[in-house]
Each structure stands twice: as C-alpha cells, then as structure tokens.
Amino acid sequence: MLENIEVSRVKRFAANTAGRDFAVGDIHGHFTRLQTALDAAGFDPAIDRLFSVGDLVDRGPECRAVIDWLAKPWFHPVRGNHDDYVVRFDTCDVDNWVYNGGSWFAGLAWDEQREFAVQFRDIPIAIEVETAGGLIGILHADCPFPSWDQLRTELEAPESNKRLKLVQNSCMWSRSRIQDADSSGVAGIRALVVGHTPLRQPAVLGNVYHIDTAGWMGGHFTLLDLASLKCTPPINPSLSYDWE
C-alpha cells in the first residue's frame, strides 16, 4: 500500500490577467481530440490556462499520455472517480475498474503503476479560480453542500477520515443534482463547473455548469470560458441536454 502523504485537497489560482481561462469536461484518454478542440478555440499555452473537471484516464487509447499533460504548466485538473482508481490502485476494486476502462493500467509494471499513483495523488479534489466576475469552483461531479465555504472547510479540516472519505466520494461520484434537475445552486461562488455525467450539450442548473459533452465517446469537447461563462462551441437550443 502507498504511504499516507498529505496533499492539498483544494488548490487556488489567482486571476489570469494575461490570457484566458477555460474549463473542459471529462477527457478519458482522448488527448488528441482535446488538443484539436483547443486549437479550434485559439488556445495559447503561453498565456491561457486549461482547468479539467477530471476523469483524465480510462476508456480511451491515450491514457499514458496523461503524464505529459500533467507536466504542462497550463493544465490543471481536479480528481475524478477514474483518477481516484489510480491513486488507490493497490486497494481498489480492480475488477470493477477494469470493467470500466482500467485495463490499460492493469497491463503496466508495478513500478510504473506506482509512479502513476504518486503523480495522481497530487491532483486536488477541488480547484478555486479567481475571475473578474468572482470566484469559480471546479469539482468532478458535484458539491454535496449548499455553500462552497462549507465544502472547503470539510475538505481542509475534516472532523474524521470517515467523514472526509464520504465528502470526497460525493465530490467525485454524485449525480443527484443533475438527475434531480436541482437548480438551487451553490452559495459563495460565482459558478461551479463539473463533469462526470455525459450530456448532449452543457446544462446550467442554478450556478452549476455541467460540461461533460462526451468528447471521449462520440460527442464533442466543450470549453467553458471562465471569464464570460460562455461555451465553445456555443449551446445549441434545439438540443436537449440529455445524452441518449
């Protein structure tokens, strides 16, 4: 089992005064497709930043390329449930992981598996980004609390390891907000950006932006400009947001 190393669960970023900040939905080992979407948006790695809602690996053909992407100074992900499998590779339900796209990892040598786990352990659960319009929060799946301040407290100063595990699992796995069409939103931030649930097009519920438009399985990668909260490509009003 990997040693217990303390890592930051909430990572903060100051406003980008030189370029643009984008968020993108689940990647799942399709980095070439992602790069194509960035090129189409005129992404400039010298001044722009890309924030990922996680699920960097599994299911796609380029999972090992994630190491190169994690080294890019402008690429900043949160941890998705598939990324958490990598962190817990020596204790998780391997059969379930392989069934859900983890066979690429099962084929690696143990030393290489451990190196992936060490790098993925540094990926935070939550990201905060300052913008001119206010603070943006980024999680993989959902915020299980009515306010961002409460989530931050729960992640940074948990009352117990059991409580922390429950909160982290909700952040990485919950679909209750999108399934219930809950538009109550999250207080204390301008917007929350999440993925996890594949949709035909982005869905906005209150101030929560669901942007996994299945670029990894035949859809397209949506890039959300964190300053304007506008999507590239733009939302098509003729489509429902349900993925069928």
Rank of each mutant, 00 (worst) to 15 (best):
E3P: 00
E6S: 11
S8Y: 04
V10I: 15
F13Q: 04
A14D: 15
A15L: 11
N16K: 02
A18Y: 06
R20V: 09
F22L: 12
G25H: 03
I27A: 08
H28L: 11
H30R: 14
F31Q: 08
T32S: 14
R33P: 00
L34Q: 07
A37H: 01
A37V: 10
A40T: 08
F43C: 01
A46W: 06
D48H: 07
F51W: 10
V53F: 02
L56A: 12
L56P: 03
V66A: 04
I67R: 15
D68V: 11
P73C: 10
F75G: 10
H76L: 07
D83S: 06
V86L: 13
V87M: 11
D90E: 15
D90G: 03
D93R: 13
N96T: 12
N96W: 11
G101P: 06
G102P: 02
W104F: 12
F105P: 00
A106W: 02
G107W: 04
A109P: 00
E115R: 13
F116R: 04
Q119P: 01
F120Q: 06
F120R: 03
D122P: 00
I123S: 13
T131E: 13
G133E: 12
I136L: 06
D142A: 14
P144A: 03
P146H: 08
W148R: 07
D149L: 10
Q150A: 15
L151N: 05
L151W: 06
E156A: 09
P158G: 08
E159F: 05
R163E: 07
L164V: 09
K165W: 10
L166I: 09
Q168K: 14
Q168R: 13
C171K: 04
C171G: 05
S176F: 07
I178M: 01
Q179I: 01
S183E: 13
S183A: 14
S184L: 11
H196L: 03
Q201G: 00
V204G: 06
N207L: 05
V208W: 08
H210K: 01
A214C: 13
W216Q: 01
H220K: 10
L223K: 05
L224P: 00
D225N: 14
S228L: 11
S228M: 09
C231S: 14
P234G: 11
I235F: 03
P237L: 05
S240R: 03
W243P: 00
